[in-house]
Design a binder for these strands. Structure first.
Lengths: 348, 348
DNA sequence: CACGCTGTTGTGAGCGCTAACAATCAACCT
DNA sequence: AGGTTGATTGTTAGCGCTCACAACAGCGTG
């Protein structure tokens, strides 16, 4: 209301220049923190900018610099705790480095969706993409797509020549398994995630290695799909085995490949009248916020999702700005969180 | 390798025009589906585009059209199931409408963070913002910020004159409470969310209304902070009351304002030796994926987060494209999911 | 046959910005 | 004193696109 002609059109650099009595180039210099500007001039310009409420037009800037300063993120299963937390870390890091980040969530994992996502982002001129695509087939598709900008994978493994960041899944699995063996269990059963997932593979591998190193023959692997329901089903099977006591390998300890499935396992055991950890110890992976309040509180492996997000942005920006060339792969350390579900009980 | 001078610079519209033997304007017309282009010409151009792998430069386009076709999203607590699912819905809807969407996750809820977020997005020329800011103070701050583009709130209430989309929280709370009364409980206790949250208020209001309508005096409200731990604490208090049997209001049914807190309540009750639902029935809100596998499976209110996301984008785009002017507020219907945690047991 | 119409294509300007270069001036050195 | 340097500012030319308009065909009509 103070301004008679409001809402006409945002002020341009030329407007600021006129207001400050300098050339538009000087305004540009002030905005880009160029050193060779007299302090007094800088002041004038800053004041004029403030007075007019000027904002640099990012489209014009992008046009001439050929830099959009925009990053893309492609993620599957964004409603889950892990990916969602990684996204937060990613996004914060990108913002700090002066990039805009745009996310594309993929529902399932068809290669077509991936291609469309890359296309969508490319049409907006992103300078790079972080792909949170933990399935082998996705990473494969990504590598073959050969995008016109750098792509960094999260949990994408290091077989293919894409740079990436992962939690050291195998180490995490080793930590849990060793913890269970140390607690006196003669063997450790495993409920794995779905086959195509790199995280499943690594966790299973870590578990298997520890057992084999200890001269223990790994029992048959049960497989779920990360959901509590699939864990429940696996749990029912385990409960049956635990009660039968006939099997070659007694069930006294289970390493479940994620916390959600562990929740299902716990329920199935409880329903089967089996006490945890008294009769069967259970451990998970991820440390979702609920894990501490499971019945009983769940021993699990914590992933520093925020760190993963931050480091993948770091890696991507290094590639974009030409500081990195190789397909480097960073590993983030996991942390074992010990809780009641694997606590050695009084019974022998 | 096939092309001697690759990677120099992406092809421009002029390149395509030359390749197709037309003017750049004709290329532009083909790209924008302008009707007045001869079919044969269109074909030529399309082929040339394909041959060169041409992509329209979005920055140049934005510069001249003054439309960035970019939307911003500001969200708090993006690692939680609800906000994360809403984001997915949002983002998908925006993409379908041809917008790029960029998300800013806020850690806590300081007004400063909000202002910075708006600023960050504004400096990229977003045409509108969806704010998933369920705290009253946030919405207040948003309204006062007076952004230079339309802002649509999600779960932001309808007191202030911002357009928005919400789940009908109050209805959801009424549904649960009525369900519990219908199951024969003489009263229903309530563990509410934090004070500043609009969702807490609405859920508490719905609960209170039903009780009062039934001539029941609502018991004292316990308050948590949405976390399982806070639910656990509230649950301990409730367990104490349930066992004491001295209080004016016996504890036989509890409506907890979200599923995570309900998990904590369940654990505390179990530890207090109280059977659910035998002695105390418990219901939650949200229907997170884990809820079905709680001990026992949790009766709760399902929110269609994806629909909320979709509708808020619809509303925002309506405002941007001038189809809506008023601060309309849309409500999405909740759905009661009945599970074992409130199942009437055999005991009287 | 001149006229106006419609459909199709081309031309020129300019969106708001940065990069490259030119111009100016004071300070400094020999 | 003359020339050289460096700091500060201005001028000009696009970045790749869309918009407004001009140009030109082909057609039917009075």
């Amino acid at each position: 209301m103070a301004h008679p002609a409001e809402d006409v059109r945002p002020p341009t650099m030329a407007d600021v220049a006129r207001e400050a009595g300098v050339s538009h180039q000087t305004v540009s210099r002030v905005l880009s923190d160029h050193p060779n500007v007299r302090a007094a001039t800088r002041e004038q310009v800053t004041l004029a900018i403030e007075r007019l409420g000027y904002r640099r037009n990012s489209a014009a800037r992008a046009l001439v610099t050929r830099r959009t300063r925009t990053l893309g993120v492609i993620a599957v299963n964004t409603a889950l705790y892990g990916p969602a937390s990684t996204l937060t870390g990613l996004e914060e890091a990108a913002r700090e480095q002066g990039y805009l980040v745009s996310t594309v969530s993929l529902r399932t994992g068809e290669g077509q969706g991936l291609k469309d996502a890359i296309d969508h982002l490319a049409s907006w001129g992103v300078e790079g993409v972080v792909a949170i695509t933990p399935q082998r087939s996705h990473v494969q598709a990504l590598a073959e797509l050969d995008a016109p900008f750098p792509v960094v994978t999260v949990e994408g493994g290091h077989q293919l020549d894409l740079p990436g960041v992962s939690l050291d899944q195998e180490l995490g699995a080793r930590m849990v398994t060793e913890h269970l063996l140390a607690a006196g269990h003669g063997n450790v059963w495993h409920v794995a995630g779905p086959d195509d997932w790199l995280e499943s593979e690594a966790r299973t591998a870590g578990w298997r290695t520890v057992l084999e190193e200890s001269g223990i023959r790994p029992p048959r692997v049960l497989t779920g799909d990360w959901s509590p329901l699939s864990g429940y089903r696996a749990g029912q099977e385990l409960a049956g085995l635990a009660l039968a006591r006939r099997g070659a390998t007694p069930v006294t300890a289970v390493f479940v490949a994620n916390d959600q499935m562990a929740l299902g396992v716990l329920r199935a055991l409880r329903e089967g009248g089996i006490r945890t950890p008294g009769q069967v110890a259970v451990a998970g992976f991820d440390d979702i916020p609920e894990a501490e309040f499971f019945p009983p509180p769940l021993t699990t492996v914590r992933q520093d999702f925020a760190a993963i997000g931050r480091r993948s942005i770091g890696l991507l920006v290094d590639h974009i700005e030409g500081r990195a060339r190789k397909a480097e792969h960073l590993l983030v350390e996991p942390q074992l969180i010990m809780r009641a579900s694997t606590r050695p009980s009084n019974e022998s």
